[in-house]
Design a protein around this nucleic acid. Structure first.
Length: 535
RNA sequence: GCGGGUGUAGCUCAACGGUAGAGCAGUAGCCUUCCAAGCUACCUACGAGGGUUCGACUCCCUUCACCCGCUCCA
């Protein structure tokens, strides 16, 4: 399937529109249309239902070490600025980049390393975007090439001992960029702030600056004590939250996959440190299964454990649930959800202040005066276990899913084109969205076969009887084949048709979207029939 | 943000420095007894803003969006 076809369908049928489209659109923002809003709601509600409300805290689900409770939160988008300073987002999301005018590449300013070298009276800084030994070899080779020397002449280069990072250099004119052949091709560093800023209150100065949250997780951590004090939950337990997050991405791309405003479905699961590894594996597998259950096929969906060197600074284990989106190159996968073992990092950060890695553990980052760079809340976020009489900081497992990405993956997976014979027996292309019935925006459509003989009246009665139970669509216009095809494109799993036989025995046909099979049920029983099939 | 490409109706595609066309889709009606049928009518577009010109959809500039790279992640 080509992505363009899905994008066209989404617009044609009202799943997704570009935000502010009549003004030319806004890069990185998308609106859900009449069908899209129902689809996304179903994704969200199935997640909340299966993770939170349907969870039975009295018994351990398969694979879980023991029973656990689940509860929810709905936190604000704008929070105290200190939250982001302690979480690390404030520093992490203020990146400086330089561009190379020659190679048109962009580099993170602080990740370019270089060495001064002199030959024949000219002193230049040769740089590399690689790390460690790779960088050293890379730099040497580039220096030889720049001065047009052979490898055997490398002793004629005079190196200044030690490598330096680019942020120590003020003048770029003697810098040889990582992928350039000539000097001075790098632009001055420019800041890219990935957090949206705003101001709270009437004053607009640095003291009133606040941020739109770049993730929902922090709202959960800062409310950890509130939940403990108010809900009688005991470790292990999880807190779930669904909500909008904002990242001012440098390059929004690939339809809704990377948007600047997006919705997250996150769980922070708190457990005892010694059982955290077990819980991590449980959540990883549990979350993977959720996507499988909703119809993401095995070979386009995968669970990938991160390599140790890929782990975030705080994590001691992360797995991504990934989907082979059609806009990616063959063999490439895009992240739907990250399941991270975050240890005690987050709760400790909000107690003590922003943490940095120190040896095997973490320590509060200090400023030049030896004081905490960003001060924590000072509140005790540890947990006292009444049974064992132990106090500890719970470890955290974080399954963090993108609601828009999941929705997009379900759409991609559902998009099918097949061939079905028309009334003359000629094969016709059919576009059908094979969405899981639980996700389908419309569950059933009701048609009178023809608009006469009292069929519309019967169909309208059936429509009225179904409406209280699930979203239904009534249509009496044009040929029935056309109405079927329209519902196929909307992903409606069942079509109920009133025909002449209904007039005599009261039965209607129910048509299956995927197989096109039809069966007859009594018109008073079709709500039951379809509800059973949706479950 | 930088480089390359692309912007005409809901979709796919025409034409032209001088009145923007078609197919499909949509809407209304007629006709129709199960998979995009037929007939009739209707609706709908030059991404936006400047400039050149008697006149610009067409040429130039700017901008916005989309696609492909660099970068990043839910």
């Amino acid at each position: 399937m080509q992505m363009e076809q899905l994008v066209a369908l989404c617009k044609r049928r009202g799943f997704l529109f570009q935000s502010s489209e009549i003004y030319g659109g806004l890069n990185g923002f998308w609106d859900y249309g009449p069908l899209g809003v129902e689809l996304k709601r179903n994704v969200r509600e199935d997640w909340w239902h299966s993770m939170v409300t349907a969870h039975n805290e009295l018994v351990a689900p398969p694979g879980a070490p023991e029973p656990y409770a689940m509860t929810g939160l709905d936190c604000t988008i704008i929070m105290h600025p200190q939250v982001w300073k302690c979480s690390g987002h404030y520093d992490l999301f203020h990146d400086y980049f330089v561009d190379c005018r020659e190679s048109n590449r962009r580099y993170r300013y602080d990740q370019i390393v270089g060495r001064w070298v002199e030959y024949d009276g000219q002193r230049i800084l040769v740089t590399s975007y690689q790390t460690g030994d790779d960088a050293a070899a890379d730099i040497e080779q580039k220096a030889l090439k720049f001065f047009k020397l052979r490898a055997k002449d490398k002793d004629r280069l005079q190196w200044t001992p030690g490598s330096i990072s680019l942020d120590k250099i003020s003048d770029m004119s003697d810098v040889l960029a990582p992928d350039a052949k000539s000097l001075g091709t790098l632009t001055a560093p420019r800041e890219f702030n990935l957090m949206f800023e705003t101001h709270t209150g009437a004053l607009r100065d640095d003291s009133s600056k606040t941020f739109l949250r770049p993730e929902t997780a922090q709202g959960i951590f800062v409310n950890f004590k509130n939940v403990l004090d108010s809900s009688r939950v005991k470790v292990p337990f999880g807190i779930a939250q669904i909500g909008k997050s904002f990242r001012n991405e440098i390059t929004p791309r690939n339809f809704t996959f990377r948007s600047r405003e997006f919705e997250q479905m996150e769980i922070e699961f708190f457990c005892r440190p010694e059982s955290s590894a077990e819980w991590y594996r449980y959540w990883r597998d549990r979350r993977y299964q959720w996507y499988l259950d909703l119809g993401l096929a095995g070979d386009r969906l995968r669970l990938r454990d991160h390599d140790p060197d890929e782990l975030s600074h705080y994590s001691c284990g992360t797995a991504d649930i990934e989907y082979a989106f059609p806009f990616l190159a063959p063999g490439e996968y895009g992240e739907l959800e990250g399941v991270a073992h975050r240890g005690e990092f987050d709760l400790r950060s909000h107690m003590e202040g922003k943490l940095v890695r120190e040896g095997d553990g973490f320590a509060v980052e200090k400023d030049e005066h030896g004081q905490p760079r960003y001060r924590g809340s000072g509140k005790d976020l540890s947990y006292f276990d009444d049974e064992t009489k132990e106090r500890f900081i719970p470890h955290v497992i974080e399954p963090s899913a993108g609601a828009d990405r999941a929705t997009l993956a379900f759409l991609c997976e559902a998009y099918c084109e097949d061939e079905q014979p028309d009334e003359k027996g000629k094969m016709q292309k059919r576009v059908v969205l094979k969405l899981h019935p639980r996700l389908a925006p419309i569950k059933a459509a009701v048609f009178p076969l023809v608009k006469k003989d009292g069929m519309p009246e019967i169909a309208k009665d059936i429509y009225a009887a179904l409406k209280p139970w699930f979203p239904v669509f009534y249509d009496e216009k044009g040929a029935v084949g056309r109405r079927y095809r329209r519902q196929d494109e909307a992903g409606t799993p069942f079509c109920i048709t009133v025909d002449s036989q209904t007039l005599t025995d009261g039965t209607v046909t129910v048509r299956d979207r995927d197989t096109l099979e039809q069966w007859r049920v009594h018109k008073d029983a079709c709500a039951e029939d379809i509800r059973a099939r949706l479950a």
